[in-house]
Nucleic acid binder design. Structure first.
Lengths: 204, 204
DNA sequence: ATATAATTATGACACTGTGTCATTTTATTG
DNA sequence: CAATAAAATGACACAGTGTCATAATTATAT
């Protein structure tokens, strides 16, 4: 969260800072970015930065929120329009991430952010994790056609979908074409839906 | 790869350096570790470090190899003993990772490493990725009971299993008990085997 | 044994980036 | 137009980096 001082800044100055930061965050992974580069690019004094933001993390969080908006709200809307289909939800999220990358610089920025999400998801985005949001909004999800037997199964399903989707987002940036990447993701979702093993029911 | 100079060092000195490095790598995530701390703990001169290793990355790679050994070989052995069952393979890998954490310091070290694997898997471990090894050793995998239709399906299955397993390893460290974590992982594998949707075959 | 060469060890050095803070500049208000 | 509050500034002390000339050690040849 930036300080009031930052919010009070004239828009042009705010935008200049945001643009400089995005450029820096797109350049290298988070740990390698430097505040020095940001303040130089934005043409503000070093001390001013600390008057606007607590830290580099603070700034990144702010910029991410600028892009993602209210994720919970978005998820709710998608779920309602999809009749609670959880697979469509994740596919929609995946696609809307791709659509966010409208120009070269946004593409680079998102690429850097998503590729560097840690397996453990410790830090940033924590509160906006699909897992937590979907736990809260369980009632919006149509569970009748899901293989849910125990209390824990719902959570497990969300975790699987989340892992695969985030991973797919990251690898999308490495594919030659977006189309190929999409196909791969859809293939993965199909396996999740129907299972990797043949003859599922005949075992029973 | 350390230099010959390093390999020629008396074992006690080598061990002291490795121990110091492990401690530092366990302390904070890779980007935050400092060579300064390592050389101080190991009681060697700063310059000496650079005579032994090219960089911090170099050192970490070396230490990881010390722990993991030849992964390809391991995978081959497991596959043969499991009659090519790909699910058992991943479960075995998961469990053997857990078993590696015999004491507190190893636990901390592994935790740090695994939690900080990037979604995109860019850097370290690249060559030892299960995906690549299993592509090479396709013939050892029993594919008869897998729902493989097209050429790409095999790769997709491996990717899914790999994502879920790595993610499970990472979250294992956050669970209260190892037993609970294992149960969650097994539940995930069951979903992958049989699918999240009910009535798979009846659709056809 | 000892001169010579090769290997290994050392820490001072120049550099880059960090967060702070006393001071200056600009804006607001009575 | 003071007086006061808010915002901007960059010098400063720190911490860590990789290098390199020099010193210490070890190996080799005579």
């Amino acid at each position: 969260m930036p300080t009031d001082t930052f919010y009070n800044l004239p828009n042009s100055k705010k935008e200049k800072i945001i643009k400089a930061a995005q450029k820096e965050f797109a350049r290298v992974e988070f740990e390698q970015t430097s505040i020095k580069n940001i303040v130089e690019e934005a043409e503000i004094a070093r001390g001013s930065f600390y008057q606007y933001f607590e830290s580099k993390e603070d700034l990144l969080k702010y910029i991410l929120e600028l892009h993602t908006g209210d994720i919970e709200n978005k998820i709710q809307r998608i779920l309602i329009s999809n009749n609670g289909d959880i697979f469509s939800l994740f596919i929609d999220m995946y696609n809307s991430m791709l659509e966010e990358c409208t120009n070269e610089s946004k593409f680079k920025f998102f690429r850097r952010i998503i590729e560097n999400i840690k397996t453990s998801q410790g830090s940033i985005l924590e509160s906006g994790k699909p897992e937590k949001i979907l736990e809260k909004n369980k009632n919006l999800v149509n569970q009748t056609n899901l293989r849910i037997k125990t209390e824990e199964d719902y959570k497990t399903i969300i975790r699987i979908l989340e892992s695969i989707t985030i991973k797919a987002m990251a690898t999308t940036f490495q594919f030659k074409s977006k189309e190929e990447a999409k196909k791969e993701y859809y293939r993965e979702i199909e396996f999740l839906k129907n299972g990797i093993l043949k003859n599922k029911e005949s075992e029973a």
